[in-house]
């Protein structure tokens, strides 16, 4: 098969041969550079905290992971709402891609939080409002993904998953506000509209974490969307072939 570059997409005769494109390749290179800068500032250049010591360095991956898990949930909720309103497969696949990446970042949030909690609180896990609501968010995302992969017609599983997708928004609000509404072992936000609890290189390292992990998130959602698109095309192709074979056999007219 001959391969040539058409526009920004590496293509065979008339279609891309992978989920990559020139744009995602450039995005990938920029992302890798940003991750390198994050390692430099997060693990080497930024100082240890006066009270927490070096464990504060977990913040530079924990907080951005949490923020991006919320972003993925919002993307899923928006995609789900548009799908239910307009029956747009494009938006439904955006919601699906967002949910899978959000589940990944929610898992990162829970695991890094536990690893931060052990040296800071003395325990890996407590059932306080923040940790419990975050665990429920993870379960909701896994529920969405399970329903989305049911062995049923596309419209049936997409509609059911979209309804679960809408439920992510109130859950995120509860997760975000839990440290304000209830007394929790988890601290109140490090960054808020009223200002930051950290300064200098620590604040810059956290900012670097936001930039780098946001770039990773965008790259992942683009690729996962394209994979989902290909999966649906393959399924539709299989259905068309099955119908054509049945027609050839004279089973259906």
């Amino acid at each position: 098969m001959t391969t040539e570059t058409v526009g920004s997409v590496e293509a065979s005769a008339s279609g891309p041969t992978s989920t990559g494109s020139r744009a995602t390749m450039i995005l990938g290179i920029v992302t890798l550079i940003a991750l390198g800068v994050l390692v430099l500032f997060g693990l080497i250049l930024s100082p240890a905290d006066e009270s927490q010591g070096d464990s504060v360095r977990i913040m530079y991956v924990h907080v951005p992971s949490a923020m991006l898990s919320y972003a993925g949930c919002f993307l899923t909720a928006i995609g789900s709402a548009v799908y239910l309103w307009r029956k747009s497969q494009w938006w439904e696949l955006v919601a699906y891609a967002g949910a899978e990446v959000a589940a990944l970042f929610t898992a990162f949030t829970l695991i890094t939080g536990m690893l931060w909690g052990r040296p800071t609180w003395g325990v890996y896990w407590v059932w306080d409002a923040r940790l419990t609501s975050e665990a429920l968010l993870m379960l909701l995302l896994l529920g969405y993904l399970a329903v989305r992969r049911l062995a049923a017609d596309y419209e049936v599983r997409a509609k059911r998953a979209a309804i679960i997708g809408l439920l992510l928004v109130p859950n995120i609000i509860i997760v975000r506000q839990s440290v304000q509404w209830w007394r929790t072992l988890h601290q109140t936000p490090t960054l808020s509209l009223s200002g930051a609890e950290i300064q200098g290189l620590m604040l810059f390292s956290l900012f670097t974490g936001f930039v780098a992990i946001t770039l990773v998130f965008i790259w992942m959602v683009i690729h996962r969307f394209r994979v989902a698109w290909l999966e649906e095309q393959l399924e539709a192709e299989g259905l068309d072939t099955a119908i054509a074979e049945r027609r050839a056999e004279g089973v259906i007219s």
């Binding site: 005769a13 008339s14 279609g15 891309p16 041969t17 992978s18 994979v227 290909l230 095309q233 393959l234």
Partner: peptide
């Protein structure tokens, strides 16, 4: 998946 899906449906 790109190898399995016909070229015209990969967009």
């Amino acid at each position: 998946l790109s190898k399995q899906v016909p070229p015209e449906k990969r967009r």
